[in-house]
Write a protein that binds this DNA or RNA. Structure first.
Lengths: 344, 344
DNA sequence: ATGAAAGCGCTAACAC
DNA sequence: GTGTTAGCGCTTTCAT
């Protein structure tokens, strides 16, 4: 039987004893240090193989001061956007031998900064998606989280790259698209009240409104999921708008579903747009016009930025900005006369 | 300035110095050991707060022999099924103070066992979703992965709970549903060739065929994603079947999309069924008839099983079996005469 | 009640 | 080239 050290698992000491050498030599062999005599190295490898020895990463981490793990804080793992970021991040990091640890804050913004700190301490770096955290809080914790990469947020803390999607421009592009189709009454089905990316959309809409004083833009309260959209049908109809900009694809899908149940035709009666271009957006009926964001790529870039920081390379690429691409599909069409004037 | 130990980060030693006590006392205070004099404890807490000291989890893990982290191996993070398992697992584990580390094998089955081992060593336990791994390989590595919970696989290794969805029964239920609608020519659009859950479906279909010799069941090669379904239109039409059981919802959605492009009506011309009941299944047009699997709950259960193992509780609940629930929606309808006989 | 010291499993100076 | 030794940051006996 393989003898084992106190803990019950096979450790470097067991291999050392079996091979008749010191721990240090075993360590050297396991790490490919070539200053070891080939014969001895072979003996060590044989012993390690026989005992099925695998170095304990925790001991290794403590000694090396690195864990080969990065963390990601997301507000909601059920959201396709964060799933995509995670996927891109995980894939890219894996290629460099890093794993990713998940911290889901479940939309509880008060948890975000605690979770971030905890995750960071277990890892070599952190990707933070914290749309609800206040700017003040972000400023405060950012320095302690370094190496840190921010998604859709910015901070004045130095050396913290931000990957941000230009939701403001994206929303403007979508609004312009609707105007070109002849819509003069639009409505924005907003996202969660304190969401940073919602703020960006709002700012974009202000610019749009200034440029198009002839267009009526109604602001509607909302959220970020399917049910929000589904439940907003009444408010949308009451607004009299014919072109609806939903906060994101999920909301747009919910809205389309609700409109359909009411017997309304999209885009015949009302045009609906989403945002993100999640994988299913092209398969809805009608296919959803949306602002496409290369979100998986964003996750991949997040890793590249973080890697540069971890390697202490001069992070001469302090973040990046992503322009959404207007993806015109079937959920938008020419405006018909506003309903409120149909019988006027 | 807060003085710091060699590493640059604030450690227990710094707090000890500042509070004028030993490391041991600081450790006791941080861990809520009440044998410490209240005054001293207060002094330590003050010092810790002032230095913003946070214990290093790696050091802690090494000393305690636990990481408060569990791992999950998934074949593809882009698959909604695994996303849902991850979500359920992550949420449940978080409630007990555990985090989850992801290992995505990207459908490379040869990687699965290596990844599993690596992930396991960094964690206190592992949830393994390895549909492509051979039984032999699974048998071999399972013991070394303990505490381990298996998803949709079983092993003879003792103390390894399996959470398995009864795909066989589910497929039979779906087939029966189609038969009741009058379909006599069915086709199964299979999953990946070496997939364990595909095998289960196949076995279920064998039972069905034995019970319904009058029904013609064609087997079609396939895969597990949207494109597979989309690309299978020709094969499906060639089969002459009027009731199609797709491997899963994604495949079904791709198939529906492809049929729609060909001008075929679902369910008018062909009935299509999926499997899993992913979040979007109810929002397709037509809404998808499917075998609903409580997949998030499965992730949650995976944690409960794993927790019992980690706590070394008598794991008297060695796994569980989940019965899919037939969810009849709009993508299935009465059969019309087989196309091949329409002009016969 | 508290400190000194050992030990978790490993790597890396340093000495031979 | 290889063994000895000293950490990495923490918890936990064991003395006191």
């Amino acid at each position: 039987m393989a003898r084992k050290s106190a803990s019950g698992r096979i450790g470097i000491a067991d291999v050392a004893v079996k091979a008749g050498v010191s721990h240090a030599t075993v360590s050297r062999v396991m790490n490919g240090n070539f200053t070891v005599d080939p014969d001895i190295a072979a003996r060590v490898r044989a012993a390690a193989a026989e005992l099925k020895y695998q170095p304990n990463p925790v001991g290794r981490s403590l000694a090396l001061g690195k864990t080969d793990t990065i963390g990601i804080v997301v507000p909601d793992l059920a959201n396709p956007t964060f799933q995509a970021i995670l996927r891109g991040l995980s894939r890219a990091a894996a290629q460099d031998g890093y794993r990713v640890l998940i911290a889901d804050s479940f939309e509880v913004s008060s948890e975000e900064s605690i979770l971030a700190g905890e995750a960071r301490r277990r890892c070599d770096g952190l990707v933070l998606c914290a749309p609800r955290m206040t700017d003040a809080e972000l400023e405060e914790i950012a320095p302690s989280l370094h190496p840190l990469v921010l998604i859709n947020r910015t901070t004045t803390a130095p050396g913290v790259p931000s990957l941000v999607v230009d939701y403001g421009q994206g929303v403007q592009d979508i609004a312009e698209h609707l105007v070109e189709l002849g819509h003069t009454r639009l409505a924005f089905l907003a996202g969660p009240p304190r969401s940073a990316s919602n703020e960006m959309r709002l700012k974009g809409l202000e610019i749009f409104k200034a440029a198009h004083p002839e267009v009526d833009v109604t602001m509607l309260e909302g959220g970020s999921d399917f049910d929000t959209g589904h439940g907003a049908v009444d408010a949308v109809l009451a607004s009299g708008a014919t072109g609806i900009l939903a906060f994101n694809d999920l909301v747009a899908m919910g809205l389309m579903s609700g409109l359909h149940e009411r017997g309304l035709d999209v885009p015949g009666d009302i045009s609906v747009t989403g945002f993100d271009d999640i994988p299913f957006a092209r398969y809805t009926t009608p296919a959803l016009t949306t602002g496409a964001v290369p979100i998986t790529e964003l996750g991949e870039q997040a890793w590249h930025q973080l890697r540069a920081l971890i390697r202490k390379e001069g992070n001469d690429t302090p973040g990046g900005r992503y322009q959404p691409r207007l993806e015109v599909r079937a959920s938008t069409g020419p405006a018909k006369a506003p309903r409120s004037t149909v019988h006027g």
